[in-house]
């Protein structure tokens, strides 16, 4: 009987590689989706007085909330969070920080 270990190894390595790539892609897609949502929320008119918040991303990594805050600072330096008033260079730096996150 011939040795078929090469064909078996190549066949069984493929799903492992696929699962790893897909896990990475899913993670990446999720991060992108969260970032898109954060940007859209930050770009939208804030706090209409109904009590509904579009500010936070509960249930997600604190790092992302930090990124969201950075984006919000950049987009709304004079918005409903006066404590966050910043100059344009500071806002750009905040966006850069958000990009890194």
């Amino acid at each position: 009987m011939k040795d078929h270990s090469f064909y078996l190894a190549m066949s069984y390595a493929a799903p492992v590689v696929v699962v790893v790539i897909e896990a990475f892609r899913l993670q990446q897609q999720r991060r992108l989706a969260l970032r898109t949502r954060a940007l859209e929320r930050a770009a939208a008119p804030q706090d209409d007085g109904t009590g509904a918040s579009t500010q936070s991303l509960p249930g997600h990594a604190p790092a992302f909330n930090e990124a969201l805050e950075a984006v919000q600072e950049a987009h709304h330096p004079q918005g409903h969070q006066p404590a966050f008033g910043r100059s344009q260079p500071a806002a750009d730096a905040a966006l850069t920080r958000a990009d890194r996150l």
Binding site: L26, A33, T36, A44, S56, E69
Partner: peptide, 28 residues
């Protein structure tokens, strides 16, 4: 994947329980 799509496509929906959101806002 579909959860990511929902997040991306419906950014203004509050999927999360308000109490959790409030907690994180306080944290922020």
């Amino acid at each position: 994947r579909v959860r990511s799509l929902i997040i991306e496509r419906e950014p203004f929906q509050a999927w999360e329980p308000p109490s959790v959101g409030a907690g994180l806002r306080i944290g922020a």
